[in-house]
């Protein structure tokens, strides 16, 4: 068979997503206050990050509760070869799930330093992006770092 012909195609469609009443309020807390807010919902306790309703029983989200920027790692995945155009940094880092102090669910985020000390059970704290860099994104928390 002859050498197969290939066609290179890039399909690109930019979007401007609404952030909504609940996610938007959570993200505004990161951007404007450097504070992390969760929502109390039936069946799940304090959900961080909140989605506005209970994922377990469908009831509406209740009061907003501030949680601490510190917490405990419940899952850790160390990435030694970051994927360009996807991962948040070019150097080795770890994805983590962090149950923040005062929350009952875990937040997915990254840890960039002290990877060798990171375990399920390690305590970490949020590192904020500089004021000028916070845009109303989950990445307004630049990363988490291991508490020494």
């Amino acid at each position: 068979m002859t050498e197969p012909l290939e066609q290179r195609v890039v399909t690109e469609f930019p979007y401007k997503h609404s952030t909504g009443e609940v996610i938007g309020r959570f993200l505004a807390g990161l951007k404007d206050q450097k504070r992390i807010w969760g929502q109390r919902v039936a069946g799940q306790g304090v959900v961080v990050p909140p989605v506005g309703y209970s994922e377990t029983d469908g009831s509406a989200g209740g009061e907003w509760v501030e949680v601490k920027p510190t917490g405990v790692v419940t899952a850790v995945a160390r990435v030694y070869r970051p994927i360009a155009q996807l991962h948040p940094c070019a150097e080795p880092f770890a994805f983590v799930l962090v149950k923040l102090d005062g929350a009952d669910t875990a937040l997915a985020h990254v840890v960039r330093d002290d990877l060798e000390r990171l375990r399920v059970g390690t305590r970490v704290e949020a590192v904020w992006a500089p004021d000028a860099d916070r845009t109303g994104s989950i990445r307004d928390i630049a990363c988490f770092r291991v508490i020494t």
Partner: peptide, 24 residues
Amino acid sequence: PYYQAAIGLDPTSTAALQASAWMA
């Protein structure tokens, strides 16, 4: 798109998170 895709999670990394939780 807001909380999980935005930090760059890929299927191998989420599988590794799950594996770590299982192993722990």
